[in-house]
Design a protein around this nucleic acid. Sequence first.
DNA 1: CCAAAAACATACTAAGTAGTATGTTTTTGG
DNA 2: CCAAAAACATACTACTTAGTATGTTTTTGG
Lengths: 196, 196
Amino acid sequence: MKKAAATRLAILEKAFELIYAKGYQTTSIDDIIATTQVTKGAFYYHFKNKDEMGVSIINELLKPTLTGSFIAPLQNGGDPLSGIYQLMHNLLIENEFLKVEYGCPAANLTHEMTSWNADFNKALNELTEQWVKTMTDAIESGQAGGSVRRDVNARQVTLFVMAGYWGIRNFGKLEGSKEVYYAYLNELKHYLETLR
Amino acid sequence: MKKAAATRLAILEKAFELIYAKGYQTTSIDDIIATTQVTKGAFYYHFKNKDEMGVSIINELLKPTLTGSFIAPLQNGGDPLSGIYQLMHNLLIENEFLKVEYGCPAANLTHEMTSWNADFNKALNELTEQWVKTMTDAIESGQAGGSVRRDVNARQVTLFVMAGYWGIRNFGKLEGSKEVYYAYLNELKHYLETLR
DNA sequence: CCAAAAACATACTAAGTAGTATGTTTTTGG
DNA sequence: CCAAAAACATACTACTTAGTATGTTTTTGG
């Protein structure tokens, strides 16, 4: 049971790439199996249907990536405001997997699938909640440590920052250029400074 | 040539409602003509194809609405920061047409259609650019009038605010509740105050 | 090594899709 | 009022889609 797991993972990864680039609804199973070089039999052996595969992408690919790359940097105990800025900078500018033309995978799926498929909604909610909680905790420990003003509402700030991130990703898709990312990051820096 | 225009408008309006609720790709022309009570012949008499209809929705429905409801309030010459907050409050809380489960129509279309259909991209870009320009102008006249700090970058602030709006709309879809809207608006108010 | 289960392959189906061909009705300008 | 054009209606096509039925191959534990 080693090769099979590799096949399953290959399907998930290729499917994710296609969906990230083209969207969930417009990525057909025929597309997926063609680029993955597996057959329909293999696909439906591993997944009950298309939606189950989609949810698996969130749970088995996106969640671990989020935990590893986006959450860990906020948990090192350093200054949370600098940490948040660095994280956003990494995601928007340095990360070479995320493409400005394609936006944010999680935001894309939320847009497309929410209020359409409850399982997607649940998986995406968990994904997001994990990030919200981490960022909120980081801000609160910053407050305890004195690097963040005591009178700011940590969760409120988190939602404000994450909303900005999702939104500027959408803007980037529209403009097709990272220029808006730089503008956003500049203003984010100013905003975060006001929380000290 | 009066009835025909009414038919065309009816198609656009019903199609928009369906697309706003279900998404563009998952709204079929059969759906549209069924709920509009027109036939396929009428549909294809008024529109060359589905995409032309989609672009018409943006140009003939969304743009005028944006101009009337969202842009005019920023051009009354009053305090732009209060104006921006009021506008966001209206859009998120009071507007009874926009539904939290469905998000922002323009953001939805951007997510779904950008980098997929150049005509959509162009229309959405014009729509957005109009809003960006209006908000930027309002902030700059606020700077001239002394109600906004001189050292803020008006366009940068505009992008930051609009990104937040689009993002929190996405968040709302995910959570299915306006609670996140209130959190966002609170923090937006704080942020805007720092620009005075 | 070898049966049984797991993993994959192929051919097909039923339903939906955008769009077209070809009509009929309605409106409009002279 | 009446031809001509505009506006609409119906029936169809060619294609794509998710999913299934029924195989064959490969792996695995005893």
